[in-house]
Design a protein around this nucleic acid. Structure first.
Lengths: 215, 215
DNA sequence: TAGATTGTTAATCGATTAACAATC
DNA sequence: TAGATTGTTAATCGATTAACAATC
């Protein structure tokens, strides 16, 4: 649980705010200027009360007659979710998955940019891959310090993950997005988010077979 | 919430069972024959009570003196999590991410195999990519029927996602792992799991900046 | 005004944890 | 036996939803 501006914001709420922003960007591009909580809720697949509650966390407020101002909400979410002046990100492990993520983020998010990639393979280092320079892992500490990077994406094999995570934390990282199928041990204050494709696919396969009881 | 053998199993529990299995495989490979709930809990990053509660769902039981039998637990989890005779999976969208996922699963999981890939680009179809045949999307219904596929992975651009999801559902899919940054609308009984890399990275970046209060 | 929506508190719900008798 | 662990229920905790006065 994080506390911002004296208000507690849960992890799930942050995820939903990120989703609302994307939906609002679509509405803005379509020329929509205002939106009611129940409209945003329908798009996000949540309840209207959930939306209103979540939006209490960001500064922007709505009006009973016109709902929420789309541009105001986008701005409020920007202030809440984005770092001032952008936030650089490092990616370690330029294999199949690493390259796919570099390609995906290349030039897409001006605020959240992968500015440095790392690999142990000398045939990959020294090159620019999908617009991102690839350094040898030995340069991790220096590059993170020089570029002020506090967030790392881990796309290395399971065996290497804990070692790289330790190196990232020593180099000052405070957040790690981990694709390796291992539980990382990190000191308090470092936030780890696991994105384990196999585990999620097993879950989907299970429910595809065993069905679900809708509430 | 799914009900199996008369026992309700939450989505989160399925995810943890999948994690336990991976940890148990490592223990087995190390030659460990039995494990206590608190040992497994430490590896998984959960409480011992949580482990015991989760394991109640699978058939295998433990003994107060020796804990749980590693092989027995792995077998119990196999029966619970895996489909008899394996479960084929389809992947739609052979771009950077799609190829990375094909490479990742290629030959790794005998029980959960991506047996068919689909793309709309004629330069990609008709070929075998990372051991998986790539079909034109027009063949979706036929191939899913012929191969008995009920699970699909969506790695297409956001604009195409809903259309492909509809086609998957019409072709009999009951589970979808969605990488596209949109909320899919599917009929009841179809399980969708969203794996939105941007959203998760935004979350990590947020907590890397704003810190966390450990409970 | 009447009707609908916002902001916010109280009630509900579900999942996690604590507790403990039974067991080895 | 004494000590530790399992299996399981009861208590706790946190997040979601319902409700409603204030507002437009």
């Amino acid at each position: 649980m994080a506390v911002t501006n004296g208000r507690a914001v849960s992890e799930k709420t942050i995820g939903r705010l990120s989703l609302y922003r994307r939906l609002l960007n679509v509405l803005r591009d379509e020329g929509t200027t205002s939106v009611y909580s129940h409209e945003l809720a329908a798009l996000a697949g949540v309840t209207a009360a959930q939306v209103r509650r979540d939006l209490m966390g960001v500064a922007a407020s709505g009006s009973p007659s016109r709902g929420y101002d789309v541009l105001g909400l986008i701005e409020g979410l920007r202030v809440f979710l984005d770092a001032e002046g952008g936030q650089p990100v490092a990616l370690v492990g330029v294999g199949n998955l690493g390259r796919a993520i570099l390609a995906y983020f290349s030039g897409r998010r001006p605020n959240l940019t992968i500015t440095a990639a790392f690999d142990s393979d000398p045939t990959k280092t020294g090159r620019v891959i999908h617009g991102c320079r690839c350094h040898p892992v030995g340069d991790l500490a220096r590059v993170l310090r020089d570029e002020g990077i506090r967030v790392g994406i881990l796309t290395v094999p399971a065996e290497a993950a804990q070692g790289v995570a330790d190196a990232l934390v020593r180099a000052g990282a405070r957040g790690i997005l981990n694709f390796a199928p291992v539980r990382l041990r990190v000191p308090p204050g470092v936030h780890v988010e696991d994105l384990d494709v196999t585990m999620v696919l097993e879950k989907v396969a299970y429910f595809a077979r065993n069905g679900e009881n809708e509430a």
